[in-house]
Structure formats: structure tokens, C-alpha cells
Design a protein around this nucleic acid. Structure first.
Lengths: 237, 237
DNA sequence: TAGTGGTCTAGACCACGAA
DNA sequence: TCGTGGTCTAGACCACTAA
């Protein structure tokens, strides 16, 4: 189906092509630019704007003199993904058990990274996360209550990132710090591992348009979780 | 200085602006599009093409109705960086002690990821890496001897990525898998840590234009090394 | 030779922000 | 009101690839 978007022709073209190639094999040809010009009755620059976006997303690949082709799927470079999305992508069933969800006063550390004043209200949400019923991770998330008033009303959301998206606050940028460590006794009990077992600690700071919305610290079982990260080079431009 | 690039006007505009903003404060205004149109005597679409590239690089930020501004510097999203570069960026002195450098026959695993046939020659380079004289990491790198003939002649290079760059084979894409583990006895001795201490294991697969050039496995001391990764969202497009 | 993407022109109208 | 970036047009010539 053609996405109907009022006014923005390049968006219409882009979404048309996106759906056209959604199930296509890598390497198969996409419509040529002039073909899309004909089909949509728009200028070629408009078509190029649409294709540019898909190329930037890594979905298409241009080959001068030949055509535009469906790119080989490779891990999306540097996308901010949530635990929920990540587990689904691996074919696992993500679950989440809330251990704690309340409003606290921001301490100095949280206040600084969330860009708040000490003592400001913050949402503290602690969850035990499972994949296919096995514990994988304990996560403490801190959210700015100022940006998310009434966030916990009516219970905790299923997916944090879905909830943020619904409020127009899905992170546009995030930074993780990743280190290895030995599980504490508390963590070992929650994650059902031996004390002394290795864990992966990931601290995330996530911004939406330069506003800090989420700070979290996650502790993953080392034997059940491998983090995958894709990089791209600054390709000369 | 104005970069002189024959024929490609958008490149000339782009490099002019890049140098103009190189030392500018974040938030300071860049030249407006119409101003650049005047200065270079080109069409506005050409200027936009130049600015688009700098925005994609994260150097500039457009604000509709206001202007174009120098973006806040933030960790470059998803850049492929080497150990050497990473340590320098942290203000540490990177050193590297070669423990082993020789040509071996590719086993089935290495052959698969390097896209070679089993038994093909591969370069195996094992290094103990230090920062400010303290051991940080043991790395085993495997390189395709087919792509890098005579790589080890005349001694081992100082920086792997510099050596690859010199041959036009700097990785354009890489994927890391990251997990926590407990050090083996050998690793503990090399890294000067207790057996049973936590380590971070990073396996990297690096491509240059879809050709596999490097596969490596690194083991980092957990107490001296934290990995930082920046992400950007698929911003709606 | 025909088709492709890469580059470029010289305009246009719009929505938005600041004064 | 004026300047900004966002979108769009209807062409053009080029280098390259494939037949």
C-alpha cells in the first residue's frame, strides 16, 4: 500500500520504495530514478531526495552507471535499540518483571546526567528482564519526571521505548559504557548465577533532541548475553 | 584555505564550510545557504548538497526558520577506531608488544569469516597491548595474506589500522561482539591479574568495501578498560 | 547506443522564527 | 516583515556500464 502523506512527495516516494523492497533479495534492482519520476509525476531531485534517505538508512546502494540495488542487510549501524527490540530480533520472547517503580529525589549523580537539580523528582524503575523465561539482566532506569509527568500512572508500561515513543521522546542519541565485572551477591541471586560469575555492565545515557530522558544501568549474565555493535567508518565524504 | 577540487562544486562548498567551522564554538551560526549561493555563485541545491553532508557527519545542525549551526560535538556515532586511536583519544600512551607474528594456514573458522578457503595463508598477529605501560589487552588478529602480501616483511607495523590505511584497506565497516568472561590462567599471567578476575572479550570482524580484511579477538582487563559506544536513532526519515 | 546515477541550474512557494 | 531552512520543478550535461 502506498503510504499517504499529505504534501511531502519525497516521503511518498520513499515509503513506496521502502515497501517495494521490504521483502526483496539483496542485490535485486530497485526502480530507477527516472522510472519513479514517471510513476509519481515528480521532479528527479524529489526522487533523489527519497532515495538518498534509503541509502543513508543502508537499505539501498547506488552503483553509478548501473542502477540502484537492494543493499546487503547488515546490522544497522549505530541504531538505538531497546532490550525488547533486541530480544525480538534474536527470536526470543522478552519479558520484564518490575521489581521497583517509584518516584525518588534525584541524587547528585543522577541529577547531573539527567540535567536536573539535586532533589528534583525522578522515576526509578528497576526490572528483572528475561528472555524465553530465563533471567538475563537486571536494569535500573532513571527517567526525568519533569519530562514524563504521570509516567507511572496506570501501571508500568510494557516497553520503555514504546512508551517514550508515544510521548515523542524516543531517544535520538545514546551513549553506552560497557565493562565486565563480577556479580554482586544480590545480582547473583536475581540472575540465578553463582557469586563470582562474570557479568556485563552497561550504563546508558539517552537523549532526545539534546534533552536527557533516560539514564540506566544494566547488569547482564555473561553466559547468556553477547552484545553486538556495528560500526561504519567516516567514509571520506 | 579553500580546498581546490576540480569540477565538484558541492565538494568545494562543503570543504570551505568545514574549515570555516573547524574551530568554531558549538551553537555558533554557520553561513546561511543563500549566503553561500552568493559567495560561490552556485545554485541553492548545490549548497544544500554540501550542507547535507556536513549535517550527516554530525558537524552541523539545521534549525528550520532560524539557520544552520555548529553542532555540539559528541562521540562520533559508530566510527571504526583502533586501539591506538582510542588510547590516544583518552590521553594515554598506547604501546604494543608483539608476542607472535607469522603466517599460518586458515582453519575452518577463520577461513569462513575471512571469506577464504581452508588452508589459505593467513597472517596471525598476537600482541600484548599496554596503555601508559600497564597491560590492558591481549589481541589475536588474523588478516588475509591474499589481500596483504608481504605484510610482515620488514617487521610488524606500529599501528594495524595505519598499515591498512596505507594500503587502501582501512575498514569501512566493522562488527564487534562483546561479552564478559573470567580470565584464563594464560590471560591472567599476561594481563597481570588474578585468575578468576573478570575480562571483557571483544571479537571484531572488519570489512573494507565488503572484503573481509581483519578478524580479531581481544581480551581486556575489566578493571582498566571501559568500552564507550555511541548510537544514533533512525531519525524518522 | 541507450540507460543509469552524479552533478548542476535558476528559479518557485511554503512554514517558521525573530524583530 | 524579512530571513531561514524545507520542498519542489523542469530541465541540462557528464561519466559510466552494458548490450
Amino acid at each position: 500500500m502506498l503510504a499517504r502523506v499529505a504534501g511531502l512527495k519525497h516521503v511518498a516516494v520513499r515509503e513506496y520504495v521502502r515497501e517495494l523492497i521490504a521483502d526483496a533479495q539483496p542485490g535485486s534492482p530497485a526502480p530507477s530514478e527516472r522510472e519513479l519520476v514517471q510513476r509519481f509525476g515528480v521532479a528527479r531531485m524529489t526522487v533523489r531526495q527519497a532515495i538518498d534517505a534509503l541509502v543513508a538508512e543502508g537499505l539501498l546502494q547506488r552503483i553509478p552507471g548501473k542502477g540502484t540495488y537492494v543493499a546487503k542487510p547488515r546490522g544497522r549501524v549505530g541504531a538505538v535499540v531497546s532490550f525488547t527490540e533486541e530480544m525480538k530480533a534474536r527470536g526470543l520472547l522478552p519479558e520484564s518483571q518490575t521489581l521497583l517503580a517509584r518516584i525518588e529525589r534525584a541524587g547528585p549523580g543522577i541529577a547531573r546526567v539527567l540535567n536536573l537539580t539535586e532533589g528534583d523528582p525522578v522515576i526509578h524503575w528497576r526490572r528483572l528482564r528475561r528472555a524465553d523465561a530465563s533471567p538475563i539482566c537486571v536494569e535500573d532506569a532513571y527517567l526525568s519526571e519533569v519530562l514524563l509527568p504521570g509516567f507511572l500512572q496506570g501501571g508500568t508500561p510494557t516497553s520503555l521505548y514504546d512508551a517514550l515513543t508515544a510521548r515523542g521522546l524516543r531517544p535520538t542519541w545514546a551513549e553506552d559504557s560497557i565493562r565486565a565485572d563480577i556479580a554482586t551477591a544480590d545480582e547473583a541471586e536475581l540472575l540465578e548465577i553463582d557469586p563470582g560469575a562474570a557479568v556485563l555492565r552497561v550504563a546508558r545515557r539517552a537523549l532526545c533532541n539534546d534533552k536527557a530522558v533516560e539514564v540506566s544501568r544494566s547488569t547482564y549474565r555473561a553466559d547468556r548475553f553477547t552484545l553486538w555493535v556495528q560500526f561504519a567508518s567516516d567514509n571520506g565524504h
